[in-house]
Design a protein around this nucleic acid. Structure first.
Lengths: 210, 210
DNA sequence: TGTACATCAGTGAACGCGCGTTCACTGATGTAC
DNA sequence: TGTACATCAGTGAACGCGCGTTCACTGATGTAC
C-alpha cells in the first residue's frame, strides 16, 4: 500500500485528511482546494479525479466526521446502559471528546456552513448521531417526576446546546475565552447541575437541612 | 445630513452598516471589502479613507456590537435589581435578544475569528459585557448553600455556553437545527432547570411529596 | 514469460474571476480675507 | 458678498495574487493472449 510515484495509491483519503488539517488550522472558509492538493503532493486538477469539486471534498470530510461521531455516541450510550443516567452523561462526555479529538471534523460538520441535506447519507448519519442523544434523553425522562418533566427533545436540545457552547467558547481560542476551567470540568459540572435541576442526581448532600 | 453626490456624508458608518448586512448574509469570511464598498455606492479605494483595510472594518463592526451588547446586558442587569435571581435571568434573556436582533454584530463578534486583543477598546468593551454576567453570577452565588456552590465564574460560563449554543444551533439555520422549540423558550427553560439545580428557583411544586 | 493494448490517475498550462490594496488624480467643501 | 486657496473625500486605473475549474495530454498499471 501507500505507493508513491506517479500514482499516489490512496489520493482520495489523503485529500480528505489534508483537508481536515487545513480546516482545523485555517477555519472552514480558509480552506482551499489548491492548498490541499499541494500538501498532498499533487496538482489541483488531480482532485477532480476523486471529487466533484471543493464543496464535495468538504462534505466528504463532514460525512466521515458524522460517521465517527455517531459511532462514538452509540458506544458511549451502550456503555452507560442499563442506567439511563449513566448513558445520558456518557453521551455528553462523548460529544466533547469528539470535538476535542477531531476538531477538523467538528468544524467541517458544524461550522463549514455545509448543508446537511446536500447528500442523503449525510442527513442519515447526522440523524443517527443526534438520535442517540435523543434516545438517551427519552429514557432519562422516565425517571423524572411527570409534573416537572420537560419534553425529552428539549432535554437533549439543552445538553446539545451546552456541549456546543462549551466547545465553541472554551475548547478553542475564540473571544475572551480565558476561562479558568478545563472544558471537561466545565461541561461535567454544567450537566451535573442541569440534571439535578431535573430532579435526578440528588446531589452530594441534597441540602437536606433546608 | 445624509448628503449625496460626490461626497457621501457619512460613508464611514454606511460602510459599517453594509458590512454588517453582508456578514449576516454571507458569513464571517464571505464578507468582502469590495462588495461592501459597491453596496455603499462607492469605489473600493474609498474605504481606505476611513479604515486601514478589511480587518479594520470588521473589527469596527465588532466593536460597535460589543458596545450595544454591553449596554443591553447592563440595562437588563439593572432592571432585575435588587433581586439577584431576576438580574441573572434577565442577562441571559438579553444575551439571546441581542443575538436575535443584531445577528451581523453577533457574527462579527463571535464568529469572525477576530482577535479580541487587536484593539484595546475592543477588549475593554468585551470585558465590560462579560463582566455583567459574571457580576450577576457572583450575586447569585450568595444565595446558594455554600457546600453546593460552584465558583461564580463557572456559573457564568455555563450560562454563557448555553446561550451561545442555543444561538448557534437553534437561532440560525445550521445543521439538523429543526428543533420544535423556539429559541427563547428553549433558553428560558434550560436556564430555569439549571438554576433549580443550583438550589435556587424551588420549582413550581418542588416535588414536595417525594 | 513477453507483448499489445485498454484503462486509469496523474500532469501542466491555461482561463476568467474577484479579491485587497496602491497610486496619482480630481471634484467638492469650507474657510480666510 | 466674492474670490483664492487649503483640505478633504472621493475616483478610476492598475497591480499581483491565489482561487476553482477545464482541457488535452501522458505516464503508469493491469490484463488478455
Amino acid at each position: 500500500m501507500a505507493k508513491r510515484g506517479y500514482h499516489h495509491g490512496n489520493l482520495r483519503q489523503a485529500l480528505v485528511d489534508t483537508a481536515l488539517e487545513l480546516i482545523e488550522a485555517r477555519g472552514p472558509t480558509g480552506f482551499t482546494l489548491s492548498e490541499a492538493a499541494k500538501r498532498a503532493g499533487v496538482t489541483p486538477a488531480a482532485v477532480y479525479r476523486h471529487f466533484q469539486g471543493r464543496e464535495d471534498l468538504i462534505s466528504e470530510a463532514a460525512l466521515q466526521g458524522y460517521g465517527i461521531f455517531a459511532d462514538l455516541m452509540e458506544y458511549a450510550y451502550e456503555k452507560g446502559q442499563p442506567s439511563a443516567l449513566a448513558s445520558f452523561e456518557a453521551t455528553g462526555r462523548a460529544y466533547l471528546a469528539f470535538a476535542r479529538k477531531y476538531p477538523g471534523h467538528y468544524i467541517a460538520m458544524f461550522e463549514s456552513g455545509i448543508s446537511i441535506n446536500s447528500k442523503p447519507e449525510l442527513a442519515l448519519l447526522a440523524n443517527r448521531a443526534m438520535g442517540v442523544l435523543e434516545r438517551a434523553a427519552i429514557e432519562l425522562s422516565r425517571h423524572i417526576p411527570a409534573e416537572k418533566r420537560p419534553p425529552a427533545q428539549m432535554v437533549s436540545a439543552h445538553v446539545w446546546a451546552m456541549c456546543h457552547g462549551v466547545v465553541e467558547l472554551f475548547s478553542r481560542g475564540s473571544p475572551g475565552t480565558h476561562s479558568p476551567f478545563a472544558p471537561d470540568e466545565l461541561l461535567e459540572a454544567g450537566i451535573g447541575i442541569y440534571l439535578r435541576g431535573l430532579g435526578l442526581v440528588p446531589g452530594d448532600d441534597e441540602g437536606a437541612g433546608s
